[in-house]
Simulated scan of single mutants.
Amino acid sequence: MSQDRSHRGPVQRRREISDHVLSEGSASAADLAERFGVSPMTIYRDIDELEREGVLRKFRGGVTAQPSGVFESNVAFRKKTMRAEKEALAARAATLIEPGMSVLIDDSTTVLELARLLPRFEPLTVVTNFREAINLLAEERGIQLMALGGDYDPLHDSFLGVSCVEAVEALRVDLCFVSVSSVYGDHAFHQEQRIVAVKRAMLAAAGRSVLLIDHSKLGRTALHRLTPLSTFDLVLVDGRTPPDDLRSLDERGVRYDVAPIPDPPSRRPR
């Protein structure tokens, strides 16, 4: 297998490296060199290029798809993580929506789970900059879909930049749903300033705003402070959130609700 792979071009090899690391979460350079039948020097060149493209992140001796305080994970990796928690958050968020509303959703994979539920509330006006959400809702006749333009960013599969911010600023919606990379203390954070600019515009354009955050993001740090948690009318956390984190939200006076996570079918009592 490695001999066959060694004859593949760098573009195809990097795509396969990316797929492998996104699937596994991380990999060492030595393992990748053996797996793809190339030299460690070649693998390090591939890793450098994948990091430059924002697909993966280097660490000593290897590469990872995991986020850091300055690196947001690729959307393909984020879609695979915390699925049960995201579905629970989306189900709870959906109870806030009524037919006839205008709803603004960001480019997070957490809120993408909510986008899958929106056809239940037709007629509905939905505004988003997330290409996957646009594709998901484009054929729904009962949804008036407004796609926010801007500079396309393949890492997030969304439209960003000044023109996106200006498009948001021209709107006023009933409800806005967003997620972030981390919550630390009484603030929400994100690694990338261009994402922060769009999310801030979204929050300012909404009559009410809701933050959906799974427990893995609590107590984590990221480079850019987005907004105080008090900005949100409601913060939704999942049912696996540790009691200490809930107590911290209580102490800070954060308006929050817990989205229960159903037991898997095999674990439900008969």
Rank of each mutant, 00 (worst) to 15 (best):
D4W: 05
G9A: 10
V11E: 13
Q12P: 01
Q12H: 05
Q12L: 15
R13T: 13
R14S: 01
R15H: 12
S18V: 01
G25H: 04
S28M: 08
A33F: 13
M41Q: 11
T42R: 11
I43R: 09
I47V: 09
E49N: 00
Q66Y: 14
Q66W: 14
Q66C: 02
Q66A: 09
G69S: 08
V70A: 10
F77H: 00
M82L: 10
E87N: 00
A88T: 12
R92Y: 06
A93E: 00
A94Q: 05
L96S: 00
I97P: 03
P99K: 06
M101Q: 15
S102R: 09
D106Q: 03
S108F: 02
L112E: 07
P123Q: 10
R131A: 12
E132F: 05
L137V: 06
E139P: 00
Q144F: 13
H156W: 02
D157A: 10
D157R: 12
D157N: 15
S158V: 02
L160N: 04
L160I: 07
G161F: 08
R172L: 03
C176N: 11
V178M: 07
S179L: 09
Y184V: 00
G185W: 14
Q191G: 05
E192Y: 07
K199F: 08
G207L: 07
S209P: 05
L211S: 04
S216W: 04
S216H: 07
G219N: 13
A222P: 03
L223V: 12
H224K: 15
F232R: 03
F232T: 02
L234N: 04
R240E: 11
S248W: 04
G253Q: 02
R255Q: 05
R255V: 06
V258T: 11
A259T: 12
D263M: 14
R270T: 14
